[in-house]
Write a protein that binds this DNA or RNA. Structure first.
Length: 653
RNA sequence: GGCGAGGUAGCUCAGUCGGUCAGAGCAUGCGGCUCAUAUCCGCAGAGUCGGGGGUUCAAGUCCCUCCCUCGCUACCA
């Protein structure tokens, strides 16, 4: 029996589930149901990722112990899925013992294979840059920016010898063009591999810094950091190494992720598997983001648009259908209530719902609700059946390739074709003329093909499709898409069908407010997974700011300066070179990363706050004396400015 | 700056090897039917296929160049 294994990422539990999580999981569910309906033995996994810094911090904020915190948030995810009709076979948590045991075993295996080394990470550390320099970056053994010899510093950690697998992975990608799909993401990974040298991956944190993690089997002073923990859920849940499930399903592994975690899944994970001696997964399927309109729109409605709320308001099936139909898998798409309502009305209410309604009510009227016999078929019947064959076959093929929008479009060609067939055949005229034989054939074909459509839609809209099948006197559980591709006699004459009903009532007044200028659809709801940075060995530490004495604060010389001139940095995209009058006679040059957010001319004349006694340094070759203070905000940057004009050079205190 | 993906009807997008490829759906307008959830069916749009140049008998479809958008990447102390 053919098998299929589909996974979502395990979701990081430092925040509540949102639209992105819902989308990924609904896609995975539809795919799982699709493969079940193909008759394949299918396993569908999701879960939560629960270790790491951010969890500890988030738990501290709520005053909970990390374990209690993750129990609580993980349950938010686990409890949500049934509400979205998600049929996952398992739900794995990285804090479970079965997972930890697997992580330790694989770490040990990779360690024994010699692919993990202790990071006497002797790096060339430039004090000026505050980071490690690669050999390539150094000129004559010196830092090109500071003209000083970097210091040889070692930081202790464990590293995975990932660089070793660079060539192998590139070759694997060339040999399996659909290993990562859609293709654009495969290209991205390839260029990643071919351009920059793949660096080894830091996989540990000293316990002194982080204790909320899985202890390394070969060094109790360290815990496993991020990917060697999280990614392994895909095999730990299958009971690797001994689980029967592992041998059954792993060869058919399909991962589903959002594009923000392409690198870990497309690069780290295959290398890790290769090193551990496990076969790599079969496909990595990467989707884009849902863009949500600016909050202004929803504020006027009195509430922020909560996508999960929409699922309840418009019906779960409509929500699922919309997500799959509207987004081209791999691309970004924009989520709006208008678009959701448009889909609902045009595709579901008008085309499909009305088709079912008119068909059932005619059978009711002309045949007392009993499926008639089909008599020999004419030319237009054959044309309809031909349309059905291609539509259904395309649906199956496109869906299997994760091209859900095209698949549904293809299926709708049949739906529209059926509406047209009814018009052309005019059953009401046949009834009037008393041509019962012909009438029976027409009605039979409509019902039979409608049934096939319902079977195909089972993965996308389980409830509505099930209801439709029930109305057609069918047993929904028996739905098998493969069987529907051939033959047009699946519906037994004599079957009693229900009277017509409103499967998808039209939604009349959409959300009223269209007034506010629709600000560019921006602000992506990050789907799928909290982005985790994978710090290089030199990563600066973050963490809550400690309190300081006033004397420390006073060390900073903050001044208000007037921007006199601004130019783009000749050698950098994001840098601006500013001449700022700080009341010192001559303006000082400050280089800052503002180019993304401000056009040079818009800054001239503005007063800004400058850290005047910051040690000068060169940025991309140009000296910068000080820095300009700014505040990051969603997708932008705001400069700090005095509320009224002041004399250049005035001290901030 | 480097690499990659795109710029096709008002909107969302199809367009494989260059020659009925100038298309679909939605929206809009007109017409038809009445079984049906005022639903369905038919017809209509002249959109410089981002700009310019080139190859060719023939180019959204190949080459060059320019512009714009998005992603990855470097610089953002």
């Amino acid at each position: 029996m053919s098998r299929f294994y589909i996974t979502t990422p395990i979701y990081y539990v430092n925040a509540k589930p949102h639209l992105g999580h819902a989308y990924t999981t609904i896609v995975a569910d539809a795919v799982a149901r699709f493969h079940r309906a193909l008759g394949e033995e299918t396993y569908f996994l999701t879960g939560t990722d629960e270790h790491g810094d951010k969890i500890v911090q988030a738990a501290e904020k709520t005053g909970e112990a990390p374990g209690a915190f993750t129990d609580r948030v993980s349950a938010l995810f686990k409890d949500l899925w049934p509400r979205l009709d998600i049929t996952n076979d398992d739900f794995i948590r990285t804090t479970e013992e079965r997972h930890k045991a697997c992580v330790r075993a694989i770490l040990q295996k990779v360690y024994d294979a010699g692919d993990i080394y202790f990071g006497e990470y002797a790096g060339h550390y430039c004090l000026g840059c505050e980071r490690f320099l690669t050999d390539k970056e150094m000129v004559d053994g010196k830092c090109p920016d500071h003209q000083t010899a970097p210091e040889l510093i070692s930081e202790k950690n464990y590293f995975f010898r990932m660089s070793k697998y660079q060539g192998w992975l590139a070759e694997h990608l060339h040999r399996h063009p659909d290993f990562i799909r859609p293709e654009r993401y495969r290209n991205e990974v390839l260029s990643l591999l071919e351009s920059g040298a793949l660096e080894d991956l830091c996989i540990s944190r000293p316990k002194s810094r982080l204790s909320w993690g899985i202890e390394l089997p070969f060094d109790a002073n360290f815990v496993c950091y991020v990917w060697f923990d999280a990614l392994l859920n895909y095999v730990s849940a299958l009971g690797w190494p001994d689980g029967g499930k592992f041998h059954k399903f792993w060869p058919a592994a399909n991962h589903l992720v959002a594009k923000d975690i392409l690198k870990p899944h497309g690069v780290f994970w295959p290398c890790m598997l290769q090193s551990a001696g496990l076969p790599v997964y079969r496909h990595l399927n990467v989707h884009g983001y849902w863009l949500v309109k600016d909050t202004k729109m929803s504020k006027s409605l009195g509430n922020v648009v909560e996508p999960l709320d929409l699922a309840e308001r418009y019906g779960l099936d409509t929500f699922r259908y919309f997500l799959l139909r509207e987004m081209r898998f791999g691309n970004d798409a924009s989520f709006s209530e208008e678009a959701l309502v448009a889909r609902r009305n045009a595709d579901l209410a008008n085309d499909l719902g009305n088709l079912a309604s008119r068909a059932l009510s005619m059978v009711q009227k002309y045949f007392g609700g009993v499926v008639p016999e089909a008599a020999p078929e004419g030319e237009i019947d054959e044309a309809l059946l031909e349309l059905a064959r291609t539509s259904l076959e395309n649906y199956r093929g496109l869906f299997a390739e994760f091209r859900f929008d095209r698949a549904l479009e293809s299926l709708w060609e049949l739906v529209r074709g059926l509406n047209k067939y009814i018009d052309t055949s005019a059953p009401w005229a046949l009834a009037k003329a008393g041509d019962t034989a012909r009438l029976g054939t027409v009605m039979y074909l409509v019902l039979e093909l409608l049934r096939k459509v319902a079977v195909c839609l089972t993965p996308v809209m389980p409830e509505a499709a099930g209801k439709l099948l029930a109305q057609l006197g069918q047993e929904p559980a028996a739905a098998n898409i493969l069987k529907e591709l051939t033959g047009f006699n699946g519906l037994a004459p004599g079957t009693t069908v229900a009277a017509g009903s409103n499967l998808f009532p039209r939604i009349e007044a959409a959300a009223e407010d269209k007034a506010p200028a629709p600000a560019k659809a921006r602000a992506a709801e990050k789907p799928a997974k909290e982005k985790k940075s994978v710090p290089a060995p030199s990563s600066a530490q973050t963490g809550p700011a400690e309190s300081v004495e006033y004397a420390d604060f006073a060390k900073l010389d903050l001044r208000v300066g007037t921007v006199l001139g601004v130019e783009k940095h000749p050698d950098a995209d994001k840098l601006l070179v500013m001449q700022i009058d700080c009341g010192e006679g001559a303006p000082r040059q400050v280089v800052g990363g503002l180019a993304e957010f401000f056009a040079p001319e818009t800054l001239v004349g503005r007063q800004v706050v400058v850290v005047a006694n910051l040690a000068p340094r060169k940025l991309r070759g140009l000296e910068s004396k000080g820095m300009v203070l700014a505040v990051k905000k969603d997708g932008g940057l705001e400069l700090l400015t005095p509320s009224g004009a002041v004399t250049p050079g005035s001290r901030v205190s």
